[in-house]
Design a protein around this nucleic acid. Structure first.
Lengths: 205, 205
DNA sequence: TAGGCAATCCCCTAAAAACAGGATTTTTAA
DNA sequence: TTAAAAATCCTGTTTTTAGGGGATTGCCTA
């Protein structure tokens, strides 16, 4: 039984890279690629791969959302998250949304084959490099902020004051102030400057 | 006459991707790859490609520095910068350090061939996508800040208050305040939050 | 050698953010 | 369905920034 492989990624070189690494592998069948979420979904309407490599960042829709969608519609498809960044928040979200694995875009052929084997057995594959980072991230702790907190954070970084944010979000200034306090606490910083720098580093803004 | 191609990139898939796109192209000779600056330099001691694709981010040394080094030692090699990010500061630095071109990692085969042709004619190749971004970046204009202002900016982003910065720099708090005011004016923002976000975007901090 | 710029310092006021310590109501997820 | 989490609101006080004015020194260069 051959394992059917499909990939959705907007980077042509990654598609070619993975294809080049896997195409002639025994037991694998290369079904092709899509370069955005829409064409990926269109493809899945007609054909079903066993393994779907999915870029976390797609042009039309985030891979994180697409992952949830695909898993809901076709639960049998095993999804492997694909990203240049070893970023805990992405990995966490992909796995939460049903991905069975996560590999970086600098993975070797050996790693890819290992990933495919592992997830076809129903297990979860996380490359060692990523795993190490998860532990670090858990320790350092990328703050888990809520939707509303993120909204506020973005508006703060836009240069708005509490009262301006309050007007924009139709809430009281004290509410905004509370969100702000929580953000400072979650990021463990003592003022806005440090908050914004960390948010930028974590790529939240 | 065949054009000899070499690549230095730590992402295996990018290497394979480019190889897959170019390897069987008439007139091109694929020399191989290096995955870090050191092995790239070691390779160049023995062989000389005509075109060298160079990742901006390498594990042991930044591609920006490597570019300068390679150009100094082997001026005849044409370097094409390679990056996932359409970031003006990188592009600018690569070109300043002698690169002849800059392409993104989602380039198509056509684009790569165009890039190679263009730079072999001695011209500079910048993909349209990147070019558009350069113009935007130039218009927005990274503010010209002084040494001292940058010092203050970094300390602000560390979360220090004016008085803490004053102690650290052995100056009065009013001095720090003045620098801060000048920073706000130069970045054309009205508070610290927006200042830090811009500084992060411009990669000043 | 004069003008420009960087770096330093000062005063004052108003606005904003940080700190403290609450409370209530919705949502969400186990 | 129920407990936890998120979102909302409040009253205070203190600290820090922002905005408005200045001024002096020293260095570089046109």
């Amino acid at each position: 039984m051959t394992i059917k492989i499909f990939i959705v990624d907007d980077h042509y070189m990654i598609i070619e890279g993975i294809r080049s690494l896997l195409q002639h592998e025994a037991g694998l069948e290369w079904m092709g690629h899509a370069m955005n979420a829409d064409s990926c979904l269109a493809f899945l309407e007609k054909q079903r791969p066993d393994v779907l490599f999915m870029d976390v960042n797609l042009p039309d829709q985030s891979g994180i959302e697409l992952c949830l969608l695909v898993k809901k519609m076709y639960p049998k498809i095993h999804i492997i998250g694909l990203s240049s960044f070893n970023q805990y928040s992405f990995i966490q979200k992909m796995l939460h949304n049903g991905a069975s694995g996560y590999v970086l875009k600098n993975a070797t052929k050996k790693e890819l084959l290992e990933a495919i084997d592992t997830i076809m057995e129903g297990k979860t594959y996380i490359s060692k490099e990523v795993e190490a980072n998860i532990n670090i991230s858990k320790n350092i702790g990328t703050p888990l902020i809520t939707r509303r907190e993120k909204e506020v954070l973005v508006l703060i970084s836009d240069g708005l004051t509490n009262s301006e944010i309050a007007v924009k979000l139709f809430v009281s200034t004290t509410t905004v102030d509370t969100h702000r306090k929580n953000l400072l606490a979650k990021f463990d910083v003592k003022n806005t400057a440090a908050l914004i720098r960390m948010a930028a580093q974590y790529q939240i803004i």
